[in-house]
Amino acid sequence: NRMHLVCPMNTSPYVDPQKSGHSIWEEFSMSFTPAVREVVEFAKRIPGFKDLSQHDQVSLLKAGTFEVLVVRFTSLFDVKERKVTFLSGRKYSVDALRSLGAGDLLNSMFDFTEKLQALNLSEEEMSLFTAVVLVSADRSGLENVNSVEALQETLIRALRSLITKNHPNEIAIFTKLLLKLPDLRSLNNMHSEQLLAFKVHP
């Protein structure tokens, strides 16, 4: 019976109390489905991803979609103004969202966004980093860990090479990026806890 949806993958955090749980869920699902499809399309364009077994493709996407979305949608978090843009384009302040029930996850999202934006990555670097986020051999349920690991290593090498080429005097950027991976895991875990608390099925 949650009354507010503080995830920016909604058009608004406010829920019409007249609506049934089912229709609220349907609307939420329709809101985030295009973003998930975009993540799948992105994954399909990663060289080597389609060569993995379908089971492992699904497992990686199930486990990593949230983390990919966090990286892709850092622009929704205005660090300076401390505001979050929802799908409708309307911005809500952190204070407003806190009063609606947003917890530590929101602050952690801002911290992550601030640190990632500070690295000033190009679109190509961001894209390759996102591929590294998705192709992680330590996700649960993988049937062919070696294949995923081999692809992961290829992608990490490519990212390192790109960062070295673009920032010859700032190789620390590569290390900082790799250190973002556990941060994303932590955000993913916090998000999962929120989802478990949120009974999505009416």
């Binding site: 499809r37 799948v40 493709q57 699904v58 199930k62 979609t65 998000h191 989802l195 478990l196």
Partner: peptide, 27 residues
Amino acid sequence: FSDPASNLGLEDIIRKALMGNMEEKQE
């Protein structure tokens, strides 16, 4: 234990998108 990704229906969306929406085409 409840799987958040399954709760969201993520797996279904992912499978359909991976298959190139074959199910939708058949419909």
